[in-house]
Computed example of a mutant assay.
Amino acid sequence: MSTKQSLRITEIFFSLQGETSRVGLPTVFVRLTGCPLRCGYCDSEYAFHGGESWTIDRILEEIRQHGTPYVCVTGGEPLAQKGCLTLLTRLCDEGFAVSLETSGALPIDHVDPRVSRIVDIKTPGSGEVMKNHWQNLNVLTRADELKFVICHEADYQWARQLIMDYSIHHRCPVLMSPVHGGVEPDELANWILRDKLPVRYQLQLHKVLWGNTPGK
C-alpha cells in the first residue's frame, strides 16, 4: 500500500539505541520536527523548527536501506504531527519492531498497539511538569515503558512518591536516568539502591559514546 501523506522530518539516522530495554540494539531513528514543550534539559532543540517534508513511502525506503528490524520514532514530540500515527502503523505493517519516544504531553491511546510506547513523565526540574497528560498512565501496558529524567534529589523524591502511590511499576517497566551533566550518575544509583526502588536505572549510551553529537 502506498502512503503519500507527508511528515516534517529533522533527520533519519542509523545508530545504537541509547535508552530503554532496547539499549545497544542497532536502530534506525526517525526524528520528527516540532515540539510544544521546552524542557530545560532538552538535547534536541534543533528539532523544534525547520526540517523537510518527506512522504511516508520515502521514509520507509530510507529505513529499509539500513537492514535492521528496529525503528524508533522520536522528536521533538512526534505525536504533535497527526501523520505520525499513520507512519507508526505503516512501520508495524512492514514488520518492523517499532518504539515511540514521546514527551507524555499528548494522548497515546490512539497509537497502534503493536508499538512500544516510551512515555516521559516530566518532573518539576524539567520546567514542564504541568504539561503531563496524566490519563496516559491508564492506558500503559507491559509492552510500554515509563521514563523519568532526574535533575536533582527533589526530582527523585517526587518521582519515587508518584511511582509508589500509583504502583506504576505494576503497569509497565519504569526507567530512571540522570540529566546528562546534571545530577551525578552514581548519586542517582545510590538513591535507587537505598530505597530499593523497583525501576531500571539507565544512562544514555549514545551520550557516553558520542556526547551531544546530532545524528547519534
Rank of each mutant, 00 (worst) to 15 (best):
residue 131 K to P: 00
residue 62 E to C: 02
residue 108 I to A: 02
residue 82 K to A: 14
residue 46 Y to R: 03
residue 186 D to W: 14
residue 166 Y to H: 15
residue 143 A to N: 15
residue 64 R to G: 09
residue 79 L to K: 02
residue 5 Q to Y: 01
residue 117 R to W: 04
residue 39 C to Q: 06
residue 89 T to K: 07
residue 72 C to I: 02
residue 98 V to P: 09
residue 53 S to D: 09
residue 161 Q to S: 11
residue 147 K to A: 05
residue 171 R to Q: 11
residue 9 I to P: 02
residue 10 T to C: 04
residue 135 Q to E: 14
residue 114 R to T: 08
residue 124 P to D: 08
residue 83 G to W: 06
residue 189 A to N: 08
residue 8 R to T: 11
residue 202 Q to P: 13
residue 24 G to K: 10
residue 90 R to I: 04
residue 122 K to H: 03
residue 175 L to E: 02
residue 45 E to W: 13
residue 150 I to F: 14
residue 183 V to L: 15
residue 52 E to T: 12
residue 168 I to G: 01
residue 173 P to V: 09
residue 50 G to W: 06
residue 3 T to S: 02
residue 200 R to T: 12
residue 188 L to D: 00
residue 210 W to T: 00
residue 18 G to C: 00
residue 31 R to L: 05
residue 98 V to R: 11
residue 211 G to M: 11
residue 179 V to W: 01
residue 18 G to Q: 01
residue 51 G to Y: 11
residue 1 M to Y: 12
residue 95 G to M: 11
residue 137 L to C: 04
residue 21 S to D: 02
residue 110 H to T: 07
residue 23 V to Y: 00
residue 96 F to M: 07
residue 118 I to H: 06
residue 75 G to H: 07
residue 19 E to T: 06
residue 63 I to S: 04
residue 146 L to T: 10
residue 125 G to P: 03
residue 212 N to H: 14
residue 4 K to D: 14
residue 158 W to V: 07
residue 95 G to T: 11
residue 10 T to A: 09
residue 24 G to A: 07
residue 196 K to F: 07
residue 181 G to N: 07
residue 133 H to F: 15
